[in-house]
């Protein structure tokens, strides 16, 4: 029962637009587990994501509940939910250096300039980018950017992780290695993960339950 409370729960979640039901999901994602949501484009994947993040447009209606560690997220703005999000592209802020991007993500609970800089540097070492702090994000390769984005999200100390097709823009060589890095880190941090993808290989690699939406 305790274990049931921790993690991300989609409790009889139904999303609809007008009279049309887009999708229904009922699932519990325990810490360290992955739920893969698969479906073709236009199947309502992005609507599900916005419901989870808290940016659902007024045109959509949501029934059921979204619980994070037992707490109902209804009505909470994105910044209060502490759900980390990895985008299709890395979404690094182009006007900040790599190190500043990470410091931007790093939780304010880490105090003091020296301490914060050290955590950022350690984060960079962990993703194999030691000494990259002063670099312009635009000079990084796609794989490097993806790793920085992952570390930026983790440094904010999220309670859950959403992956919005974060591997789809990477070339096949890097894809597998980034994917396993992300999934490994999430497991290590005991984060419940929801992976939205249209790629069968992603879902298989994730290893968890697979929910298919938008199918005839």
């Amino acid at each position: 029962m305790m274990d049931k409370a921790r993690g991300l729960t989609l409790d009889h979640l139904t999303l609809s637009k007008g009279t049309e039901t887009l999708l229904s999901v009922d699932a519990h994602v325990a810490p360290g587990d992955v739920l893969s949501v698969m479906g073709p484009s236009g199947s309502g994947k992005s609507t599900l994501l916005s419901a989870l993040i808290g940016t659902l447009a007024p045109a959509f209606a949501m029934q059921g509940r979204i619980l994070l560690d037992g707490e109902d997220l209804a009505g909470k703005p994105p910044e209060a939910r502490r759900i980390g999000l990895l985008f299709q592209d890395a979404m690094l802020f182009p006007h900040l250096s790599v190190g500043e991007n990470l410091a931007f993500g790093l939780s304010p609970d880490v105090r003091g300039r020296v301490a914060r800089r050290q955590v950022v540097e350690e984060g960079l070492i962990e993703i194999g980018l030691e000494g990259f702090a002063p670099r312009d994000p635009a000079t990084l390769s796609g794989g490097q950017r993806a790793r920085v984005a992952l570390m930026r999200t983790l440094l904010a100390r999220p309670r859950a992780l959403l992956l919005d097709e974060p591997f789809s823009r990477l070339d096949t060589d890097r894809r597998a290695s980034i994917r396993s890095l992300v999934l490994e880190r999430a497991r290590k941090e005991r984060l419940p993960v929801i992976l939205v993808t249209h790629d069968e290989a992603d879902a298989q690699a994730a290893g968890g339950r697979v929910v298919r939406i938008g199918q005839e």
Partner: peptide
């Protein structure tokens, strides 16, 4: 999308937009 990235990191709407 920039704003969303900042907000999912825990930033308020105004602060996230400004930065």
């Amino acid at each position: 999308r920039s704003l969303l990235a900042a907000r999912t990191l825990g930033y308020g709407r105004v602060a996230g937009w400004l930065v």
